[in-house]
């Protein structure tokens, strides 16, 4: 059997460069001074262009990058911990919990980004905890199946809760805010948001990157993982809390962004190999590229903004269907 055609290290480097390229292009794409973009030279003379790029586009770009990387890392981590390639951050009550928290914050606690993040994180982790507790009490099926079932129940509970909050929200001010937030988008983010979310996202990204080899162990059956020295409960808990905290915090900014956490880990595994040693950094880079690309489409395609969640779902679902039908996407031929 031949060596893999592509050295994973060079592959990661190449994607890092693609990410930088996409970001550099995205900075100049937009509806100023005319539709679809500005010449880079304009940045030197036009103070409005400078303010636009520095105060609006740059923070938004960075948040999109964090969003994509975090969702992808979270998806990949959960898929490996739960030994199920169809798991994503929306699973286990995390996203719906965070959505409920954000709606609570909009209704009663105010729109301050830090407060929204903390409530979303609190309810996101709460969703995870409730799912876990319920799964322990279920008397049906294996551990993974019980988690899935409990996750479905808790998610439904929280989305019903969001429905109640929408019903009692002020239809002129609060309701539109909740609705747009639920559709998912980054139109209002600025530097303040970026700096508030950065520590949360960094916690999840750095923890999962550092523990990526352990993540491989956790994807084995319990006996095998234990025999290789894994502390199953502790390591699972550390990874899940770190990555869920990051996801809930960034979800409080962006709203629910579907499909990134499901589809990107699949592509990363196909291209960089299954081992999280390579596939986790690959998922972070690809997630960043995908989300920055989608967000650029969201803000430039039409004069009015398209919610980011709609674009990621549209492209994500199409890519997922394509991926499931094709077998020729592998770089590692055999």
């Amino acid at each position: 059997m031949p060596e893999p055609h592509t050295d994973p290290k060079r592959l990661l480097l190449a994607w890092g460069l693609v990410l930088l390229g996409v970001m550099a292009i995205a900075i100049f794409v937009g509806r100023y001074p005319k539709p679809y973009g500005m010449a880079p030279a304009l940045l030197l003379e036009d103070t409005l262009a400078q303010r636009l790029v520095l105060n609006l586009r740059l923070p938004r770009l960075l948040v999109a990058l964090l969003l994509g990387s975090t969702l992808s890392a979270c998806g990949l981590t959960m898929q490996m911990i739960f030994r199920n390639p169809l798991v994503e951050p929306g699973f286990l009550g995390v996203s719906q919990g965070a959505a409920f928290g954000a709606a609570v914050s909009i209704l009663w606690l105010g729109r301050h980004p830090l407060i929204m993040e903390l409530t979303a994180t609190f309810f996101g982790l709460g969703g995870l905890a409730l799912t876990y507790l319920l799964a322990r009490r279920l008397r049906y099926g294996g551990w993974v199946l019980r988690l899935v079932l409990a996750g479905i129940a808790i998610s439904a509970l929280f989305s019903a809760g969001v429905g109640v909050l929408k019903y009692i929200a002020d239809p002129l001010t609060q309701l539109p805010e909740i609705t747009f937030w639920l559709l998912g988008g980054l139109w209002s983010v600025g530097w303040e948001d970026f700096f508030y979310v950065l520590p949360f996202a960094a916690l999840g990204l750095v923890t999962s990157l550092l523990m990526r080899w352990r993540l491989n162990l956790l994807s084995l059956n319990d006996a095998a993982a234990f025999s290789l020295g894994a502390s199953l409960t502790r390591e699972r808990l550390i990874l899940l809390v770190a990555i869920v905290t990051a996801t809930a915090a960034i979800t409080s900014l962006s709203g629910i962004i579907g499909w990134v956490g499901l589809i990107i880990p699949h592509i990363a595994r196909r291209l960089a190999g299954v081992s999280a040693h390579r596939s986790l950094p690959a998922a972070m880079l690809l997630g960043g590229i995908f989300t920055v690309f989608c967000d650029t489409l969201a803000r430039t395609l039409f004069p009015g903004e398209i919610p980011l969640g709609i674009i990621t779902s549209l492209l994500g679902a199409l890519m997922f269907a394509y991926l499931m039908m094709s077998t020729g996407m592998k770089l590692r031929k055999h």
Partner: peptide
């Protein structure tokens, strides 16, 4: 095994201790 690790990746896991 839900994920198709390569043989080398799988064997390398044995070095985790």
């Amino acid at each position: 095994i839900p994920f198709n690790f390569s043989v080398l990746e799988c064997v390398l896991l044995g070095r985790s201790p």
